[in-house]
Amino acid sequence: MKELTLSEIIFMLAIWRLEESAYGVTIRKHIARVTGKTYTYGTLYSALDQLYKKGYVIKSAGPPTPERGGRSKIFYRLSPEGIGALNAARQLQKEIWKGIPEFFLDKA
């Protein structure tokens, strides 16, 4: 399995954190708060589509709401494969950082 990229990890963790309310607007807001990067919807959606195509997230349509011009929200959830991939990524991170003391970075 290919490793997740950092932005994929950010997206997927955002979806996990937002639990039941993970859709475009909230994901974007959350990422903006955590990383300081504001995505356009073009980028956001193509990233989400990539995740969907790889099978890491599951899409589901919610009820239509009036403030969205009568359109449904698309909610995202992590799929079991997604959770597995995240776990693998965390494992990898741990391995990479293992034994590297904090002060090593401070010095540099």
Binding site: G24, Y45, A61, E67, R68, R71, S72, K73, I74
Partner: peptide, 8 residues
């Protein structure tokens, strides 16, 4: 979905 998001 996207359109809804943008409008919201």
């Amino acid at each position: 979905g996207l359109f809804g998001d943008v409008e919201e």
